[in-house]
């Protein structure tokens, strides 16, 4: 399942489509644009408009529509302080809510997968991996990844210390001047909230070297986390992935 904000990087979409084709898998797409068209959510306005928050509604609707019992994701505890409190097998009530103060304790590797109809789970099998573990594993097993994780030249502009990819989804302020730059993405959300890093790393080995010496966390370029001190927790409580 993919919740498509409509503002994704083209490379992400190409990667998604190839992956589906290669595995002959059935892809379920939840469209944020459709949720907007149906009047379920309202598009944000202004220079900082993003569909990041809106996608929660689409995600929950899609889970409900397809009666999904368990959504498996790649979220990790080392990514973010609210995610550090997340369970491996995380229960969601019929509203899709996360209740961080009342989670089921997880001991040894005994996971409680019991739920009522209409409720679901979010499972995070690689909860205890670190960013470095992921890159080492990708290298070891030769796992394909979207091309924008590697260094490339693209049109970017600067805003509040973050390097954004320029696109038709972004509304530039008069003083923001697009320029060409050699960048890569360390984490990929949609284009309105993901910042790039200035990087020459064009191989997995170079990325690993860069991650090892970085002084900034992986999601340090994610503006969606920075809307407030508890931005991730607040979104997760509502049902964000």
């Amino acid at each position: 399942m993919h919740v498509d904000t409509g503002h994704n990087f083209e490379e992400t979409m190409t990667f998604r489509d190839n992956l589906v084709k290669e595995h002959g898998a059935k892809l379920i797409v939840g469209s944020v644009q459709e949720s907007i068209d149906q009047g379920k959510v309202q598009e944000e306005t202004g220079f900082y408009a993003s569909r990041n928050k809106l996608q929660t509604v689409t995600l929950l609707d899609t889970i409900e529509k397809h009666k999904i019992d368990c959504a498996i994701g790649g979220g990790r505890r080392d990514e973010e302080k609210a995610r550090a409190k997340e369970r491996v097998f995380s229960h969601r009530d019929e509203f899709g809510q996360w209740d961080p103060k009342n989670q089921r304790p997880e001991l040894w590797n005994l996971y409680n997968g019991k739920k009522r109809p209409g409720e679901h789970f979010r499972a995070f099998p690689i909860s205890n991996w670190t960013e470095m573990d992921v890159w080492q594993y990708i290298l070891l097993e030769n796992i394909p990844i979207p091309s924008i994780y590697f260094s490339h030249v693209r049109e970017v502009f600067d805003r509040d210390g973050v390097i954004y990819a320029n696109s038709s989804f972004m509304r530039l302020k008069p003083e923001e001047k697009p320029r060409q730059m050699r960048v890569r993405f360390r984490t990929i959300g949609d284009m309105s909230c993901t910042g790039a890093v200035d990087s020459p790393a064009s191989t997995l080995e170079e990325i690993i070297e860069e991650v090892a010496s970085s002084r900034v966390t992986e999601r340090g370029t994610r503006m969606d986390d920075k809307r407030s001190e508890a931005a991730m927790e607040d979104r997760k409580k509502e049902g964000y992935f």
Binding site: K81, A82, A84, K85, P100, K101, E229, A230, D234
Partner: peptide, 10 residues
């Protein structure tokens, strides 16, 4: 503050 990740904890 590094480990107390939840709003209520902070």
């Amino acid at each position: 503050l590094l480990t107390d990740g939840l709003r209520a904890e902070r």
